[in-house]
Design a protein around this nucleic acid. Structure first.
Lengths: 217, 217
DNA sequence: GTATATATGGATACACCGTACGGTAATGAG
DNA sequence: CTCATTACCGTACGGTGTATCCATATATAC
């Protein structure tokens, strides 16, 4: 059974899921596939192209949500699918926005969201559409990124308050006790753990409302 | 003149500005400072702490904008300062949102924006504030990230249309010519190069409008 | 002043990384 | 059968972050 870009990408994704992007190396992928490291270069020009490949595989899953009945449902579905994908493959959030996503499936997702937003804006000026797409994507990228890094730190730190205080505490609690960051302190301390998906959804609709309710240029 | 965290961070920033994060190594920093690589470990626990240090130096510059007359001006100033910093230090955008920013200056910036948003929301429920901060930061992170990667690709690709077609073209134009991505194609082709700062500002106010105009939970 | 403890700076070494390159085996053409 | 070309493969190079040991200088105790 010969190698292929698909198989390489698939095992690379498995390894990245298990050990993160830092724990991913061409040598390990090759070993996992039972070949010499250099064999991969017969299918991939360099490591960053492999990363692009992995990213596009994930976009394929996102693209599957397809079109919904209304533009808003479509956008919501895509955004949530992106978030879900990033939670399944945390390395994806590290790559998100870090390089142009030009793979076929990424383009398909881009097309779907752009078309939906175009519908949302009526017959929009192209500049308006450009801005709307930019705003939406910026929010998605940033929100997903934030959520993943937060999840990572709480994984290292432990979820209960005591463990949190113990690991981040020596430094962070000292900082917060200086009184120089009262609002942040309030957010950290009695900012309850509100549901992450709900927050994402809430903020997403906030952004969408902002985009659509804004007066024309 | 002995070493110090400040000096190490400063030369690390210089090198990262010049050659990017990938071109940054402890050995090069050490060589630049005229010391052995291991000396750096007397001041820094490992490379990622050094990165945190660099990030916080940049946040110090952002924090300098201080408080403006109204909450909205404050938020705008901070957001634009963040964008400016990221354009001056593109590696900053690579780190933005990728790890928790807990340095003193990062906390100061967080405090300033949280306080401003708190003022904007009246006497807000803490959950509302949490969400608002999340939405704003998500947008800033994503927008800055997008802009920097776009700037990088156009730097490699050349700015004029011909050079663009020539470098990305063989692949991208073929993709767009398939007709499967009509909206994206329209955006790429006759989406004029609209002013980046203006776009950022426009979308930022869109998000702020969304945050403030949204009915309470 | 001498001896001992302690801090300071340096070099070496390890495990790993991405990937350039050269050699070997297999395949097709004349 | 001979030759040329292609496909496969292992080795090796220059680089990385960092652990560890060693020498030297400085400070303290007698």
């Amino acid at each position: 059974m010969p190698l292929s870009r698909q198989k390489i990408a698939a095992t690379a994704i498995r390894l990245a899921d298990a050990h993160g992007l830092d724990g991913l190396s061409l040598r390990k992928i090759a070993k996992e596939l039972g070949v010499g490291p250099m064999r991969l270069y017969d299918y991939v020009i360099n490591k960053s192209e492999l990363l692009d490949l992995m990213v596009d595989v994930v976009y394929a899953r996102i693209a599957e949500v397809g079109q919904r009945s209304g533009w808003r449902d479509t956008v919501l579905a895509i955004a949530h699918a992106t978030r879900d994908a990033a939670l399944d493959h945390e390395w994806f959030s590290d790559l998100l926005g870090g390089r142009p996503h030009l793979g076929p499936h990424a383009l398909a997702v881009g097309e779907a969201t752009a078309a939906a937003l175009s519908e949302a804006l009526g017959v929009p000026d192209i500049d308006d559409l450009q801005r709307a797409v930019g705003a939406l994507n910026a929010f998605i990228i940033g929100a997903v990124r934030r959520e993943v890094t937060e999840r990572r730190t709480t994984r290292f730190t432990g979820t209960d308050e005591a463990a949190f205080q113990a690991s981040l505490g020596p430094y962070l609690t000292r900082m917060l006790n200086t009184g120089r960051y009262p609002t942040v302190a309030r957010l950290v301390i009695d900012g309850a753990h509100l549901n992450a998906e709900e927050t994402f959804d809430h903020n997403l609709t906030t952004v969408l409302d902002g985009i659509t309710s804004r007066p024309r240029t």
